[in-house]
Design a protein around this nucleic acid. Structure first.
Lengths: 332, 332
DNA sequence: CTGAAAGCGCTAACAC
DNA sequence: GTGTTAGCGCTTTCAG
């Protein structure tokens, strides 16, 4: 930068002004500066700039997601990217893999890079450790799951209500023996969805059979094995509600192996790939990922731009997408 | 940091040493510094650090992909994340959307953040503009598509060979009327795959019917319309080779609408979701995304760590995954 | 409209 | 082992 100033016969400050698009620079001088910059192939160093800049912003946000390669996370990532781009921000993303330690590590890694804001789909269950960072000026937002022991904007889906709806839908087709397959209830979303299932069963006046409830799997194979075992036992269900996408996929696979996919009703929670191309096509409760991301991004950027209003906890509705698998009637 | 030094009764430099894990610090002092840091809730500012640090590294790499929300890109992203994490690096990612201007914008945005290395799955077809950046010390790597008019390590799949194999596979089941559906040939991978198709047809001694070649679609709907129209014409094919995943998906949908999915043979290039759950399951030529990412990451980090050897252009093999749709014999 | 001086938070180099 | 000084590349403040 000094060299650019020298070559164009001006001062550091003027070069700075030119590159920051400050209006008060002579046309001619500005041109000279730009020419010199090109010749010396100078690129401004933003990180150095933000060190001294007024509000110290780095124009960077961080995104802590479950796994950036899964469709839910990467779809969110993309929404944030678009939103950030319009504002000249870039996004740093990391995968948590349901590991609370990793969450803390990545938070401090991102904070050491001085991100202006941080969106977390948390793996941990205590976010008190973030309080000092708020003091330091970092803005926070939670997505998919709310913070615990910490106050920040959050955006989640209607997990419970979606589950209730799934059960009501199955019940409306005459099912009374409905099995539940989901993640371990230590995960917020899984626990909410299970609660919703329980509530839905109560509303439908169906008594809950614990033998038809399966939670927490280490692998798709484990899910499949459970499904198969369940059907080999005496009290097989006529319908299945699977509350997570990988679980749903494994259930489908198991039903196919047993050639029961056209006999047993199935409703899944969350998107699964090619749901409409399967036979039968899969009926799902889907989350509005774009709306979640959009809204969460908006809340975060409002804070980054100085908004100081009360913390909100917003809920995005889920939808029932009827495709066939959920409309199979019970057979005996 | 100054405050930490004051509170622990030592100097800036010692605080710096403590946080950089330099061995030559007294145990006791080190403890005092850490305690003070906690009390003042001090977090080191890496961006300031790298400004003065020896090699000026920011421990950040940039990733320019087609679209971080598509499965190919996000799987690559994850591989890089893992590789980077082990080395204390973080990754900045952006989507190009087949837009060459956007590629240049993002490159300069990332360079202004002083990334140590940049991996590009290019949208543009001239990368001469990167030459000055090499001088400035940034390391480059290309993935999925090679650079043009610029020299850098690259890692691509065996696009041509995969296509040849697809054709040979279909031909071996007796097909002679094979349709081609793919992206516009201005995209490197699409052009390679088309070439491979042409070569494969020649090898199988099948004369190429241009009326069965469809390239460049704006939407899945357009693909479907083309498939339907093709079957309504007099010279319908008995097999289809679809050289891109979204195109393959649209072809499947079209075949299903016409209830021909069990009669027309289909081989696709690249992964499609739930390929094994469809009926028939889809035979595919698949890329080894993990190997591509792994290898590309290794090349980049070698350069970042100082390796100065010759530029390489490495090729990762594709595989034929036989599942059913590609083994349907021709019907008249 | 332009420039000089100071300093953001940190680390290199060199003393002690 | 530890401290001092200078300065990374930039923007601020304030004076012209």
């Amino acid at each position: 930068m000094r060299e650019v100033a020298a070559l164009s016969g001006t001062s550091l400050k003027t070069v700075s002004r030119v590159f920051n698009g400050v209006s008060t620079v002579d046309e001619d001088l500005s041109r000279r500066v730009k020419a010199a910059a090109r010749k010396l192939n100078y690129t401004p160093n933003m990180t150095a700039g933000s060190l001294r800049r007024k509000n110290g912003q780095t124009k960077t946000i961080g995104l802590l997601l479950e796994d950036i390669s899964n469709p839910f996370s990467s779809a969110l990532h993309r929404v944030f990217e678009n939103y950030a781009r319009e504002r000249g921000f870039i996004v740093l993303a990391g995968s948590l893999d349901e590991d609370a330690d990793r969450e803390r590590d990545l938070v401090s890694l991102f904070i050491s890079r001085r991100v202006d804001g941080l969106i977390i789909a948390p793996a941990g269950s205590d976010h008190g450790y973030l309080k000092p960072e708020v003091q330091a000026g970092t803005k926070f937002g939670f997505i998919d799951r709310p913070p615990m022991n910490f106050s920040a904007d959050s955006v989640v889906s209607t997990n419970r209500e979606g589950s209730r709806r799934a059960v009501a839908h199955l019940a409306s087709f005459g099912h009374t023996r409905i099995a539940y397959f989901g993640d371990q209830p230590s995960i917020y979303t899984a626990s909410e969805r299970y609660q919703g299932f329980v509530e839905g069963m109560k509303q439908a006046k169906i008594s809950l059979d614990k033998k038809l409830v399966f939670q927490g799997f280490d692998s798709p194979e484990e899910v499949r094995a459970s499904v198969v075992a369940m059907f080999e036992s005496s009290n097989a269900p006529t319908a299945i509600y699977a509350s997570q996408n990988l679980v749903t996929l494994a259930v489908i696979q198991a039903l196919r192996e047993m050639k029961r996919e056209k006999k047993i009703a199935l409703v899944g929670f969350d998107h699964i790939p090619a749901a409409e191309l399967l036979t039968p096509a899969i009926t799902l409760i889907t989350q509005d990922i774009a709306a979640m991301g959009q809204h969460s991004a908006q809340l975060l950027f409002n804070r980054i731009e100085g908004f100081e209003g009360a913390v909100v906890q917003d809920v995005i509705p889920t939808s029932l997408v009827v495709r066939g698998s959920g409309e199979i009637r019970p057979t005996r």
